[in-house]
Design a protein around this nucleic acid. Structure first.
Lengths: 226, 226
DNA sequence: TTTTAGATTAACATTTCGTTAAAACAGAGG
DNA sequence: CCTCTGTTTTAACGAAATGTTAATCTAAAA
């Protein structure tokens, strides 16, 4: 396994130098970008594990950039963290809404930064979502095209139904409680837990029984055999 | 199934009020603690999904508390975030080393806090540190899928039966009295101690004798040999 | 033998789930 | 801007599963 790649972007050379020096010392491979366009350039050829983005860059706004990065590989998640000097609430909220994973304040304190990055990357490594098709029993679940076929027949699912199915079928046998399903599949987590039931029922109605089991008092699981 | 539980701990009432008000509005269930000891008290009966801890509390130091929480088996998988007014680098590093997942600066900005908490919980759920299966004698106890197999044959247990078995089988040879079992396995501790007997009996009926021994006048234990 | 604690059973209470329908919401097209 | 359409969420209720209690029976210890 090669070193983790971190893409750092800032319009101030001093900051880039400081980051590069410290992160390289900590064993990471560094990609430097002086502005948003360079980030997009670099991303094409390299595949950074983590982005450290200044929020205010001359050409592309950091938040914008975050949206673009998130759009490039919708199912593939890398870690995006923002660096910012001025902590303004609306920026922080916007950053998280744009899909940021963390928000780090300047001035940069090397040791703290490295500790923080280590936990971020660790989490990222433990969580490698595959965007590949999923074939299980007679189902073929294709996240790219958002289609599901059952024994060759295409079934039409809504986005939510699809996401729920894909998530559960990605972990066959594993029981999820409703909270877990809500926070993993739903955008907005503050809906009634019973909502999950209804969508499970829809899936069962669409696919037929025998794919999703109820574990009473716990939650639901995708079966391991049928 | 209840909403996500967040345990908030701070020695300032104002902060607690602010947190509670905003987090409840966002759909979380809140547990309040005014100091470290109360945190440890609350943890016994409830199982918070996330901890928001003030780093400087009168009795137990936040970092210490974090270590203690990480040592408690059931909570090794919950999210721990610190709240702190003064950002001092050495504290931040220590916090991450103690197993913290995030480090949030006061003053608290409600919207930002909620966005941040949502991503933390989401990440936690996606990381799903799968609990390890327990293999003992001819039993295989799999908490992930809530299944038990005996010599390859799947046995179907209710949630409570499963939890009780898993708990006891995790500590073979250790005798538990009924109170201990109630507070470890049951959510709601206010049931008769005799209730335990009934469920022990159910387990014996399902698994056969020879797994759980009675220690008269004390309680029950999972055997070390059979 | 008496006493005490545990085992067993069945009735009862509670919790949880499935199902349905209606309300709320969001997006597309006019 | 409004209407139409499909989707998601809420709400209500019955059915089923599960947990608790309490009363009785059994076995072991004193």
């Amino acid at each position: 396994m090669s070193a983790q790649k971190i893409l750092i972007a800032d319009d101030e050379k001093d900051i880039l130098d400081l980051l590069e020096y410290n992160l390289e010392k900590a064993g990471y491979e560094i990609l430097r970008a002086n502005n948003g366009s360079e980030v997009l350039e670099l991303v094409k050829d390299h595949n950074p594990d983590l982005f450290l983005l200044d929020i205010g860059m001359p050409d592309i706004d950091g938040i914008q950039l975050c949206y673009q990065l998130r759009d490039m590989a919708p199912h593939q998640s890398s870690v995006i963290a923002f660096l910012t000097a001025k902590l303004e609430e609306y920026v922080e909220v916007a950053a998280f809404e744009a899909g940021a994973d963390d928000f780090i304040l300047k001035p940069i304190k090397p040791r703290a930064l490295i500790a923080r990055i280590a936990t971020l990357i660790k989490r990222f490594n433990e969580n490698l979502p595959s965007q590949s098709d999923l074939e299980i029993f007679d189902l073929k679940i294709s996240p790219d095209s958002y289609t599901v076929t059952q024994a060759g027949e295409e079934i039409s699912l809504s986005k939510l139904e699809f996401d729920l199915l894909y998530f559960m079928a990605s972990h066959p046998g594993k029981v999820f409680n409703r909270s877990q399903l809500l926070s993993s599949v739903w955008d907005n987590t503050i809906v009634l837990q019973r909502t999950v039931d209804v969508h499970i029922r829809k899936l069962r109605k669409l696919l037929g029984n025998g794919y999703i089991d109820t574990v009473k008092g716990v939650g639901y699981k995708f079966v391991t055999a049928r």
